[in-house]
């Protein structure tokens, strides 16, 4: 139990590490006054305007995009063809760790909810809490149990990636496809990933 908590904390620390960025990069990003608006596929059919709006990036921390509340978010460019690194990595991790219950592309299965819908409602903190701590809904008609991934580095080291990918799905900004074009893997990401997995 105690080791689980410790590791869950490690996960949070990992996330914090991903959040801290060399000042120089930050200054550069702000100086450039980049336009963070998404350039989505003009034919995208499932766009959820409020979710999309709330997910608009206002800040770029070395390839990690943050919304106005400081939560990680996606950035999609080139008419919906190119994604940020986190959306791409989230796609990969999702289809290794999550899809055996939650279905391909966050579409849900016969026994687990469609996360492309859940992420329309869940806050970043709620998402993180369920991921680390699990969820149980056991009664006469439902036996839905999600395990606590708090001590699973293959999941917790990629919590932000999963959140960003699923947020893009929830907003309708990214469809049912594997991202082809992607931004480069950020240096700070590489460092944080190695530290998180290796620790």
């Amino acid at each position: 139990m105690s080791s689980m908590k410790t590791l869950a904390l490690l996960g949070l620390v990992g996330a914090a590490v991903l959040g801290t960025v060399p000042t120089a990069t930050l200054v550069f990003a702000q100086d450039a006054k980049t336009d963070f608006a998404n350039k989505l596929d003009p034919n995208a059919k499932e766009i959820d305007e409020p979710v999309l709006k709330a997910a608009t990036a206002v800040k770029d921390e070395d390839g990690k995009y943050l919304d106005k509340d400081g939560h990680p978010t996606f950035r999609i460019t080139n008419d919906g063809k190119k994604v940020d690194w986190y959306t791409y990595a989230g796609y990969r991790r999702y289809h290794a760790e999550c899809h055996v219950c939650h279905g391909p592309d966050g579409m849900g299965s016969t026994y687990a909810p469609a996360l492309k819908d859940s992420l329309k409602r869940l806050s970043y903190e709620e998402f993180y809490g369920i991921l680390a701590g699990g969820k149980q809904d056991v009664n006469n008609t439902a036996n839905q149990v999600m395990p606590a991934f708090g001590d699973n580095k293959n999941v917790m080291c990629y919590a932000n990636d999963l959140y960003v990918y699923l947020r893009a799905r929830a907003a309708g900004a990214w469809g049912r496809a594997r991202p082809a074009e992607k931004e480069d893997k950020p240096e700070t990401y590489k460092k944080a990933e190695t530290e998180c997995l290796g620790g």
């Binding site: 289809h95 760790e97 391909p104 395990p147 001590d151 580095k153 293959n154 999941v155």
Partner: peptide, 23 residues
Amino acid sequence: MDYEPFKVTYTPGQPYVGATLSM
């Protein structure tokens, strides 16, 4: 399917998959 393997770490009682699949 498309199948993309990647590195994973082992934790007892936790999934140990290490590949992304689409079918």
